[in-house]
Design a protein around this nucleic acid. Structure first.
Lengths: 234, 234
DNA sequence: CTTGACGGGTGTACGGCGTACACCTACCGT
DNA sequence: ACGGTAGGTGTACGCCGTACACCCGTCAAG
């Protein structure tokens, strides 16, 4: 009865080894079928036929695991279509993101909770946003207008609400922060936008972006759109 | 050393008794200063100088406590101003809600998580929505247009995203559901809207509301608004 | 062929969590 | 005087995340 392994049913084949993606995929699958409350390190381990502590060789802790899960989801969003106007490109992308969210109803909650706990989104989210900004820029939007547009789109870009970059300058300086040049190389559009916003009002100490203004801008745009609809002048 | 009470510092005065609102207020205060992760029944009890199990005489369990906390927050939103046009009325209300959310940054996450766990929002949330719908109706919006408008506003109405009423017809029939007539009396506008939507397309089996259509409607309204901005035709 | 480092799975243990259940007690209407 | 009841207490259970020590197979260097 006592085989080579303590966990595997059959002791013959050496069992495919764990890996970060295997752990992440198992976690996503578990969340899909039981919601995020039913997700625990112990359950993931059980699903992988492994002892709980084994997971920690591949993810630092549960928070990092959640971050990784988000990245998996973002990876499910279709890449931008390069051969159309900005509007249909954005439209397709957002609808693709929505489809992903419908597949994983627990996602918004996790994204919401993770954003509040990190100073900066994960690289996959950054890349997604960067390419989204790229679509707007290619469509003839000014940097400022793209900035407004992102706020207007708000939660429609992904599950999450405003204040994506709320304040990247609090607490300790984030050990895995990118050097500026690498940042610019990897996320050109985000960098461009960030620089513009920063220069725009260098007197302000805050986040370099007047959240209140942006919120009201988006709100008014929406209200005006509704008004137009009400009057039939569309 | 052994006084009348085991918990209170001084055993002389009989200590103000617990109550649901005292528990809720303490919970909100704790969440405000430590985030929702730092919220535990044990911590709340400690803050109230009481043993953890005492809380359960006033709230059924932690989920009900979270629901109650949301109600407290919704109660902080200013009531609608009755003496203006619909647009400024909505505007003020939404901005008031936003101020509340800024005071309680943990709120969106909790709201998000609670919505997924309940078939119907709490009464306070219902009342908030009802009066919001009332503002639109009084402003001359048709029932259908209000319906669209709610979807368009999306997360701006509160912290939460779309699918507020996602599918009230799954699982068991919800023990504390209201009788239709009481429902109509208490939330007249919600009832009106729900009836209209239901009649609208009685052939469809689903939720009586084509979520996909609504999502795209809101998306397109937003995109059109952005396009107008881009072209300077505003 | 030995050896030693090391990547990766294991086992034990700790403190914190939500809460079921039994209890105790002060008060109040009869 | 007395039984009920509302409300606070104490104990205990099972789950959680994870620190820490361990152990073993692989493989490069000697």
């Amino acid at each position: 009865m006592v085989g080579i392994t303590t966990q595997a049913g059959s002791a013959t084949q050496p069992r495919t080894p764990l890996s970060k993606v295997r752990v992440l995929d198992a976690a996503v699958a578990l969340a899909d079928e039981g919601g995020v409350d039913a997700l625990s390190m112990r359950k993931i381990a059980q699903a992988l036929d492994v002892v709980p502590m084994a997971l920690y060789k591949h993810v630092a802790n549960k928070n990092e695991l959640l971050d990784g899960m988000i990245d998996v989801l973002v990876g499910e969003i279709d890449p931008p279509a390069g051969d159309t106007d900005w509007k249909t490109a954005v439209r397709r992308r957002v609808l693709s993101a929505r489809r992903m969210l419908l597949r994983h109803p627990w996602a918004p909650e996790v994204i919401e909770s993770r954003i509040k706990a990190r100073s900066t989104p994960t690289p996959a989210v950054m890349a997604y946003l960067d390419s989204m900004i790229g679509i707007f820029r290619a469509g003839g939007f000014s940097v400022d207008l793209v900035h407004h547009a992102l706020h207007v789109m708000g939660s429609r870009l992904l599950g999450f609400s405003q204040e994506l970059f709320q304040d990247s300058s609090d607490g300790e300086p984030d050990p895995d922060a990118l050097a500026p040049e690498e940042m610019a190389a990897r996320y050109p559009h985000i960098t461009e936008l960030a620089m513009a916003v920063a220069h725009d009002q260098e007197s302000v100490v805050g986040s370099g972006c007047d959240d209140q203004f942006e919120f009201e801008f988006a709100l008014d745009l929406t209200l005006d759109g509704l008004e137009r609809l009400r009057l039939g002048t569309r």
